[in-house]
Design a protein around this nucleic acid. Sequence first.
DNA 1: TTTCCATTGAAAATGTATTTTTGCTTCGCG
DNA 2: CGCGAAGCAAAAATACATTTTCAATGGAAA
Lengths: 223, 223
Amino acid sequence: MSASATQTVYEQLRVSLLAGQYRPEAKLKISELGSAFSVSTGAIREALARLTAEGLVTAMPQRGFRVAPVSVADLRDLTEMRIEIETKCLRRAIANGDLAWEAAVVAAHHRLAVTPIAAADGGFSPTWILAHGDFHAALARACDSAWMLRVRDLLFAHNERYLDLARKTDRGNRDAAREHRELMEAALARDPDRAVAAMTAHIGRTRDTIEPALRRAETDEVG
Amino acid sequence: MSASATQTVYEQLRVSLLAGQYRPEAKLKISELGSAFSVSTGAIREALARLTAEGLVTAMPQRGFRVAPVSVADLRDLTEMRIEIETKCLRRAIANGDLAWEAAVVAAHHRLAVTPIAAADGGFSPTWILAHGDFHAALARACDSAWMLRVRDLLFAHNERYLDLARKTDRGNRDAAREHRELMEAALARDPDRAVAAMTAHIGRTRDTIEPALRRAETDEVG
DNA sequence: TTTCCATTGAAAATGTATTTTTGCTTCGCG
DNA sequence: CGCGAAGCAAAAATACATTTTCAATGGAAA
């Protein structure tokens, strides 16, 4: 194999977590994962340690690893924070972006637009999730603050964990494609206020779509 | 020992890194660290993996781990971001803090005020660094956004790496104690604007103190 | 003399085995 | 019949051995 085993496991486990393939709070048994990926426990532990620092999994000393929990409160907090950071990034990207940035945004939007959203199981298709993340990343990428981008990436990753919950209630009545187009057009027009407004609405609407489904899931668990 | 070996190594390595005991870019040999802490290489690897995700060390596949680099550009970026986040936290803490918060702030300030700054080697004393971190943490702690606090902690940790560089140029001509007192008083007076102004000045002054020393260190390395 | 290739050594990555801890179950006692 | 303690099994943590990879040095050829 080209990359190291730890790296491979880390990346695969990460996309699985972001895609919601493991239930929050679910126990992540090291030996099970080891046989699933057919690598040693050491590689698994190392990957899990990195994911722990990222906050995607929680480590309980002597008691193993679990998938990080989700909650309505966390979603709201996360959304608020995302609006803050994403809009700041966007403003700086618009002020700072060159032609290459514009081209990358257009390219990413095109890929996103032509990728079907739905997967066979009713959730988002993996390729759409990827294209969606790439589009938002492309928008922010021209921001000239490495720290801001880094925090943005962290927040965006955590947001992805909530995304697949949205699909169940989001029966096509939300025109995400329209929102993405508006974002791109405002960015290319170099209209910061319009772009920020679009971004704020977009992120807020994501929360509004996810929250009911999440709330239902929470009460289901209790009852 | 009570905690796990990995946890112990992680914590100790972290404070060592924040205290600047390892030179930036320095190689962190796993076997050396293993014998130094007298634990196996596995525990070291796991601790380093977590620190990598935190950004305090960088991992190069098949080439081991290094202490994360520092630079003037990073310091400026970091400072800008810190001002954004710390002031936001502070506003929310002031709006949200109760009596327990006030008490904690006063207590932390007292500990900070009575702790001598200088260590024997001319750098900051470890106890002062701890008290300083605790004071700033206490100020922010009443902020009712877990994500904001988390990002704040991350940024503050990285800032600490630069702190010891400041000591060399900071020949007592900066009245840090005065700045901390002003911060506390503004917070207790529940005056957000005054507190934010004090915080902005405080963080900016830290950068202004560090940057010359850092710039000199950088040119020294090249020359 | 310089450059390129090969060999060698050191260090990291991985895999396996052992120890320790924890949580559960069962058995005994009240 | 219920509560508690002890033992047992599963899983995590750690130590150790093996394999792989990278880099540096030395030698040979141009």
